[in-house]
Design a protein around this nucleic acid. Structure first.
Lengths: 271, 271
DNA sequence: CTAATAGTGTCTATTAGACAGTATGTT
DNA sequence: AACATACTGTCTAATAGACACTATTAG
């Protein structure tokens, strides 16, 4: 029919097909400190994520992940970067593709397929104030064998959802996730949130991604607490220190003035 | 502006945006046996993948992964399933989403974003003959610190490509992959192939996905060989047997007539 | 008997878990 | 002194790696 690739391309009509849109959604994760009543106790840490309140239809007034449509002339990875910059005015942070969700009914406007990303930041490094419609939510989860309850709290509102986990055949880790209960989160974003947490929980054990959520200098106790809130369990000090020993480097600085022995400050050591 | 979600949706025009197409590509992986010259020696195993030769532009006459456009009214996961059925006439097999590739120039026709999947099968279970333009390629790889050489061979043609690996900051496993050399594979499919192999190499250690590539009954030696071709290294027998002991169940059948001690046949044991 | 793979016993090295102890700051 | 956390020593349990050994078939 066509004699060359050039000739073929000249005759190709991209508008011939029904339109499908592509969006990117980003799960921005950080860790927050919460002051304690007793001056001597260390601050309690929480894992937290950034949500924005929708001011237009669909899902008006519900909370959702920052996201937006992919532009035709925009690289796929540029899309989450652009949104991240718009939302938090930061660049050059850790960003990893999570999963692509594309069920037919996920967006009532039209067929939308969404590629989700997870971004890890230390939110104390943010210079600018958040946009008015954005808010950090502390995230807590209660995981059982077949379902997970996730609770999000920004100090004013509390959002909850439940995810049902179904184990796939011949796997030991592959679950199918479905939203079981969800009051106030738009689209299928509870699935994205939980996929991201799962990913983070796994990767924290065999990569160095946590350090993306840490300040330049940190105490090992703080680092341990970050592991603990992500993994949702207590760790034993000696074991923890053994594991991270090769990843950190002691500095001559200390954190002091806390009513107990000062802690040495460490920094991330590249391999 | 709009008073309700319904009203908003009535006025929404999906054709307002520039069209972006979505495709699915599938890396179908199996393990093949190759007869040995000496009747006593066991057959040599290879990991193999299914490629199809393109008969239209673009990339006419090059090999690529089975794939196709997502239909507007088709669930995202149905797309690879449909293609799999068209290509091999099998259903209900292990399928897992790999990654979504979306660089602007990956398809010369128009902007195409592609979600890739990996499928694991035991190709001896295929009842039907392959389509004429399809072929199994044995796959071998040579991995070094910063690059990988992958060689594909279907007995007639040999295809090669090289992937450059660049380690990302603050990770111990996150590499950025780029195609360095590639004679004869269409699109960015070398990236998909390598991503799939990496995924398989990782997952084989902490999941039960290998059993998707095994027949109902198998000898432990055969299972070990499958691990070995995927991981690309020799394993020690006692260690291997310890690890898989909990995943398999001995049957009273044996494999015999091979010039050496018969091997017991096992089957996969669900947890 | 021989070649070839099947399958096991056991020693060692490495790593993870548990707990108890010592150290050192602030009020 | 009391409290709270920082940090370490060491025993034990579990796991992974290495090697040598025995077992069993077809020809």
């Amino acid at each position: 029919m066509y004699k060359s690739e050039e000739e073929f391309l000249k005759n190709y009509n991209p508008k011939a097909y029904d339109p499908i849109s592509l969006t990117c959604d980003i799960l921005i994760v950080s860790v927050s400190d919460e002051a304690q009543e007793n001056y001597r106790k260390s601050s309690k840490k929480h894992m937290s994520i950034l949500l924005v309140k929708r001011d237009t239809y669909p899902f008006k007034d519900k909370w959702c992940l920052p996201g937006g449509f992919l532009k035709v002339n925009e690289e796929l990875e540029e899309c989450p970067k652009r949104i991240l910059k718009e939302e938090t005015n930061i660049q050059n942070i850790y960003l990893e593709q999570l999963y692509t969700f594309g069920s037919i009914k996920r967006d009532p406007r039209m067929r939308v397929v969404s590629t989700s990303y997870i971004a890890l930041i230390d939110k104390n490094r943010l210079k600018d104030k958040l946009k008015e419609n954005a808010s950090w939510f502390n995230i807590t989860y209660f995981e059982e064998e077949k379902e997970v309850l996730v609770i999000l709290d920004n100090g004013v509102e509390q959002l909850k959802f439940k995810i049902k986990k179904t184990l796939k055949e011949m796997t030991t880790d592959r679950y199918k996730f479905d939203i079981k209960e969800n009051d106030s989160i738009a689209f299928d974003h509870p699935l994205v949130i939980w996929s991201g947490i799962e990913r983070l929980k796994n990767k924290i054990n065999y990569t160095d991604i946590v350090f993306n959520m840490m300040p330049e200098l940190f105490a090992l106790g703080d680092l341990q607490q970050v592991y603990e809130v992500i993994l949702n369990k207590k760790l034993l000090d000696p074991a923890f220190r053994r594991i991270i020993a090769g990843k950190v480097e002691k500095t001559d600085k200390v954190k002091t003035g806390l009513g107990h022995r000062p802690s040495a400050l460490f920094k991330y050591k590249k391999k």
